[in-house]
């Protein structure tokens, strides 16, 4: 691994960047898949399960990214984010709400009501253990990223101006796959700057990167360019987050912290639908990067249907009876 000072210089030349990324050790595909599968067999029960479920709820980026999203729908989603289980005040709120830029103002209405107002964000009405529910917005011509840079930058600025404090950008896969690493790097740096105070999550869209080696390179590239989070997928292509891909990314953030001292978060997104899946990911996190990442600030789930399953499992643990989907809002 290069020394700390070298890494900051890498972005200055395409040659150095390419040499570094191609100098990263290759991923043992069979090994990564077996390791992820083996960690998925851990049995998490009783109190540990209850803890894991509450943590997973706090890590959910409650997402709706449909052409059919309406202000009413995203307002309802935001209200659910604040209080996922209205019947149980001990249920924690989710990590963030994730929407398209045009929907950000409506979410902000619900999430950012001034304290003392009569709404659900009222300090007294807020659920136990409350903190800020973040407001994430996808940007940069999500999901394909096939737009000129100026449009991507304008997209990002608009989302931040509307109240988003986290931006989920997509990398330029076209440039990455053709080997134009500098272009990808510069684009992330530019978006990073446009974000201002907002956190930047960089979506690698691993389903389109073909190999684990590419996932590792894209992870490093995004982190070198200043990503606060690296995210697996848009959820718009069939191959979304998988445990082995997340394992490779977790190894990358671990090595990156060892090399630079800066901690970067990871967000698997797409295809995580059940509590069992979510707990498998938490085991993966704990065993790969350790407990430092077992926190909503450093690990998130991009999901929509996952939350209801978590709530049903939580209800099962608190009441002893299996819950039904009829008792939770469908979003």
């Amino acid at each position: 691994m290069s020394a700390r000072s070298d890494l900051t210089e890498l972005g200055r030349s395409e040659t150095a960047l390419r040499a570094f990324l191609h100098g990263l050790p290759g991923v043992d595909q069979v090994g990564a898949e077996q390791r992820a599968a083996q960690l998925g067999t851990r049995s998490i029960k009783a109190t540990a399960k209850a803890w894991a479920i509450d943590l997973a709820i706090r890590m959910v980026d409650l997402t709706t990214l449909e052409g059919a999203d309406t202000p009413g729908k995203v307002r309802a989603l935001a209200a659910k984010a604040l209080r996922p289980d209205p019947a149980d005040p001990s249920c924690p709120h989710v990590g963030a709400v994730c929407v398209y830029p045009s929907m950000v103002p409506y979410v902000a209405e619900v999430l950012r009501q001034p304290a003392g107002g009569a709404g659900p964000a009222d300090a007294q009405a807020a659920p136990a253990g409350t903190g800020l529910v973040h407001l994430a917005s996808v940007a940069t011509a999500f999901p394909s990223g096939q737009a000129p840079l100026e449009i991507k930058l304008a997209d990002t600025r608009a989302a931040v101006a509307a109240g988003a404090d986290e931006i989920d950008m997509v990398i330029n896969r076209s440039a990455f796959l053709t080997g134009r690493y500098q272009e990808v790097y510069d684009e992330i740096v530019a978006i990073r700057e446009a974000c201002g105070p907002a956190h930047l999550k960089v979506i690698l869209e691993t389903g389109e990167l073909s190999t684990y080696d590419n996932v590792r390179r894209a992870s490093w590239l995004a982190m070198l360019a200043g990503a606060d989070f690296i995210k697996t997928s848009t959820g718009k292509v069939p191959a979304a987050a998988t445990p082995p891909v997340t394992l490779v990314m977790l190894e990358a953030v671990r090595d990156f912290r060892a090399a630079t001292g800066r901690q970067v978060g990871v967000k698997p997104a797409g295809g995580i639908k059940t509590t069992k899946d979510a707990i498998k990911y938490l085991v993966l996190v704990n065993e790969t990067v350790g407990a430092d990442w077992l926190d909503p600030d450093w690990f998130r789930f991009g999901a929509s249907s996952l939350l209801n399953d978590l709530l049903m499992q939580r209800t099962k643990l608190t009441t002893g009876e299996y819950a039904g989907p009829d008792y939770f809002t469908r979003d």
Binding site: Y322, P325, D326
Partner: peptide
């Protein structure tokens, strides 16, 4: 008993 208590039955 778990069927009798199940909310989705």
């Amino acid at each position: 008993p778990s069927l009798a208590g199940h909310r989705d039955v």
